[in-house]
């Protein structure tokens, strides 16, 4: 018998604190698998955000820094400038990256920082109790939008990948999902590419991963996957927004 699937070395043995069916676990694993496959575990420094994945430093078997809310790209910039030959990545949620940390992500991208960002978009604040996120869909219920997000008073969800793709300093921007095994495979490919872009020093790379929050969406893990597919993907279309080839044209 040969093993075709086992726990990647870039994950610690720790049990995660994530709720059952939360896709953070899948995305952590994909990042760890990519780091293993690129054989850069001992050269990688990760930055954990504030939000549900605040404890990511306990789960990645890597050197890690915990950043203040939204500041991961600034912290990553500091690390990368000190160690330009190391692999530096941030792992951030939608509140972290698209609300409180908007300035930091935009300017890290604009500077073309040679870092990789994994942006987990589940359209809600999980850790603090299901509040409206910058990516909450119009009509989607949240504890701070009890009747659903009202575009008139609460505005519209932000498409960060599209915004970032317009910035010259970005080399690779892709949006993926993890709602079925095929999409998980594609997500992994994109994450691998985002790390390779950094290794090739081509510029800033970001992968937005559409993710579920069964607990705060009030759905079972399976129903949440279906909701993601039917509601999030139409607003947040999957695909590569920008690649280095496009830059060269």
């Amino acid at each position: 018998m040969i093993t075709v699937f086992e726990r990647p070395k870039s994950l610690t043995p720790a049990k995660t604190h994530y709720c059952p069916g939360c896709t953070h676990g899948i995305i952590h694993r994909l990042v760890a698998e990519v780091i293993d496959e690129l054989d850069v575990r001992e050269d990688t420094i990760g930055i954990a955000p504030v939000g549900c994945s605040v404890l990511a430093y306990n789960y990645f078997n890597l050197d890690m820094q915990e950043a203040a809310h939204g500041r991961a790209p600034a912290v990553a910039t500091g690390i990368k400038r000190v160690h330009p030959d190391k692999v530096v990545f941030t792992y951030q949620g939608d509140g972290d990256l698209a609300a409180i940390g908007t300035a930091e992500i935009i300017h890290a991208a604009a500077r073309g920082e040679k870092i990789t960002t994994i942006f987990v978009n589940n359209a809600i604040y999980g850790m603090t109790g299901g509040q409206m996120a910058p990516t909450t869909l119009v009509g989607q219920e949240a504890t701070t939008a009890p009747s659903g997000r009202n575009a008139e008073t609460q505005g519209y969800p932000v498409r960060m990948s599209e915004i970032l793709a317009t910035i010259q300093g970005t080399a690779y921007i892709a949006r993926v999902s993890v709602h079925n095994p095929q999409e998980v495979a594609k997500a992994k490919k994109a994450i691998k590419k985002a790390f390779q872009i950094q290794l090739e020093r081509k510029g800033f790379a970001l992968v937005e991963v559409l993710s579920t929050c069964p607990t705060n969406w009030g759905l079972t893990p399976l129903a949440a996957m279906k909701w993601l597919q039917e509601n999030m993907i139409p607003y947040y279309p999957l695909g590569v927004q920008k690649t280095p080839e496009e830059v060269e044209v």
């Binding site: 018998m1 040969i2 093993t3 075709v4 699937f5 086992e6 726990r7 990647p8 994950l11 049990k15 995660t16 994530y18 069916g21 939360c22 896709t23 953070h24 676990g25 899948i26 694993r29 079925n180 095994p181 998980v184 495979a185």
Partner: peptide, 21 residues
Amino acid sequence: ISCAFCARMCPDVVITVRKEE
């Protein structure tokens, strides 16, 4: 059939999959 679809979807990395050589 050792396709590992289950393992790919598992958020808690619970599953190990093997196949015959």
